[in-house]
Nucleic acid binder design. Structure first.
Lengths: 358, 358
DNA sequence: TTGCAGGGTCGAATCGATTCGATCGAATCG
DNA sequence: CGATTCGATCGAATCGATTCGACCCTGCAA
């Protein structure tokens, strides 16, 4: 039924000629913008069918209109890593939801500075056709790309990134929330705590936190969360996990809790997955949570799938992060001013935090 | 430092004029395709900097070159649903990996037929600029869009879809694998089994499998897996889950195992998440797995994060699905023939399947 | 009968690059 | 020294649409 498959792809001009109308009229027949006699429209559509014409070429249309209908989403690291973080999914979903209603789709881009990239070859983030860009969990390494995007007049929104000139900031109160959680711990009487952090730098290695962590940190949320705890506790033991996962938390937990003589009474983890890992380690070492050890998480994932522990944790509005970014981008595209957004986390009491053993 | 931010966005023509060279030379200076005197190049680059030119416009370049560097990935349902399925992540990762090395990025598209879409307004899948398309877990509802893409001469690959003319098929041996698993159950002596299926149709409702399921099924993998079991067991109890999740499996498990007088000795689940849910239900009803009930999964997820049960399951090569699709698309784009791919699942013995109680 | 509104159509300019073929001077070769 | 090649540059065509302003006709009001 696929009609005469001609050699070359048909163009609107060919369709117009075949229908005996001008290109402009043929265009109007397809786009519906402007008056066209029903009979003429039918003739054009008929010609299109005969020629196997698949509708106006999206690229040509984009060039003329100045809009591609594409919003780039730049995600740090590899896709696999990114999707392992349970917070990214609802965020993306909120974003897609908000953009989708405006007819925009999402182009997945990975941070070019992570891959082994030629400095000579321009990164895809700099050459992809996009109307706007959303940076998520991106570090300052992207500065060069951001500058380029700005020169190309492409609106940029950044989720949980260090505020940048000319970039719409969708922030989370990571520091305040962490301080809140830490204060709660302190209030309960904990004096010796440990923090398990997300990867702070680009190297993603595991180990005790170095003295100069702040100077080398590139992950803004991780640094902010750590600062929040330090706002309450001057001294603490820090352990950096190589990723946000149960396995990494487990390893971290084993290290931190190994020495019975020198055990913290509480662990503040920078993600729920890490917290679950720490709990598993505690479990294995025969420690009861929260009687022997309190564990505080961060994120507010639904833990039902993970063994059913009810984590005490700082819940972040993940979907709303995406939604806010989507709405912001839409406003910027419409030429309207878009105010920065600050989202707040809340402490959700669970069954993993209590007073320290006497 | 951003130089004279001129009113209008600068074009290559403006840069060329400013540098005192022709547009063609300016173009060569940027693309590097062709000989340009170093001094000339510098002059062009300098002019670009002065004018705040951000490099060649991707859309214009795409129009001329006939390539966008974008591959659309059509995912059924909403993103949230899609990413909940643990098999989609590694698949996407494999795909991104393979496409990334060729400089292509992924445009996320959702099945337009699911959303409440105007039939008048063309779906984004039909108007997005793309070089190729990968359909994943898509049903025959997409037929119209597929026809359009074909008319636009856009190569299409489909993962686990019903084979279609002109669409590169990346298949999984769902039926054979399921039959294999079922045969193993039969071999062990199970005579009364139940199957928990993935959503078979678009409605995503839960409940006992209807007689006419085959006629109404739109999900090809789910149907194939069910057929595989039916190749071994003529009669069985079927229960359709509304989604691939632990919660759905749990609900299904409770329904299937509720009546002690009429309990199957084994449950074949169409995904590991469903299997884990069934196991949880069995647990709650005081049934030992595999002593009182055998449970077979499908997918081969790493279950460590989910409570540590070692599932007996049919392992599918998820990353390879994505890779194969990626490679296939690349070949099609290069104009080479791309052979269809058939990937095989393997039965991985765990601790959830055994002989029925005597 | 004239004037005017407006539906329908068309021609031409435009979006912003890439690329083919031609040109021209300088260097190389026999 | 003439022929050839090669490097550097340019002009013009091209990619495939959208859209603005102009034009023509018809119908209706004054």
């Amino acid at each position: 039924m696929d009609a005469h498959a001609t050699r070359a792809r048909a163009t609107l001009a060919a369709v117009a000629e075949r229908a005996g109308v001008s290109r402009s009229t043929a265009s109007l027949a397809f786009s519906g913008a402007g008056p066209v006699a029903p009979e003429t429209r039918d003739r054009v559509l008929e010609a299109a069918r005969t020629l196997g014409y698949g509708g106006p070429d999206p690229v040509a249309r984009s060039l003329r209109r100045g809009r591609t209908g594409i919003v780039g989403v730049v995600i740090e690291d590899r896709l696999r890593e990114a999707f392992r973080d349970p917070m990214n999914i609802p965020m993306l979903d909120g974003l897609a939801d908000e953009l989708g209603t405006a007819g925009l789709s999402i182009l997945l881009l990975t941070d070019p500075t992570t891959a082994g990239s030629d400095p000579g070859v321009p990164a895809v983030i700099e050459t992809a056709p996009m109307d706007a860009v959303v940076l998520v969990g991106c570090s300052t390494r992207l500065d060069a790309s951001v500058a380029l995007l700005r020169r190309r007049r492409i609106p940029i929104a950044a989720i949980e990134a260090e505020p940048m000139e000319g970039v719409l900031d969708i922030a989370l109160d990571n520091r305040r929330a962490s301080a809140l959680g830490a204060a709660r711990m302190h209030e309960l009487g904990h004096r010796d705590i440990a923090v398990v952090t997300l990867p702070l730098g680009p190297e993603h290695s595991a180990g005790a936190l170095a003295e100069d962590w702040e100077a080398r940190a590139t992950s803004f949320p991780a640094a902010e969360r750590l600062r929040g705890v330090l706002d309450v506790y001057d001294t603490l033991r820090g352990w950096m996990a190589p990723a946000s996962s149960i396995a990494s938390g487990y390893t971290a937990g084993l290290s931190i809790l190994a020495d019975p003589q020198h055990r913290p009474t509480a662990v503040i983890a920078q993600s729920d997955l890490l917290a679950l890992g720490v709990i598993r380690a505690a479990d294995e070492l025969g420690l009861m949570v929260p009687a022997d050890l309190s564990v505080l998480g961060f994120d507010g994932i639904r833990t039902e799938g993970y063994g059913g522990v009810e984590l005490t944790t700082l819940v972040q509005p993940a979907i709303e992060k995406g939604r806010a970014a989507g709405r912001g981008v839409l406003r910027l595209l419409a030429g309207e001013p878009a105010p920065p957004v600050l989202l707040r986390c809340t402490l959700r009491p669970g069954q993993t935090v209590g007073p320290p053993a006497a």
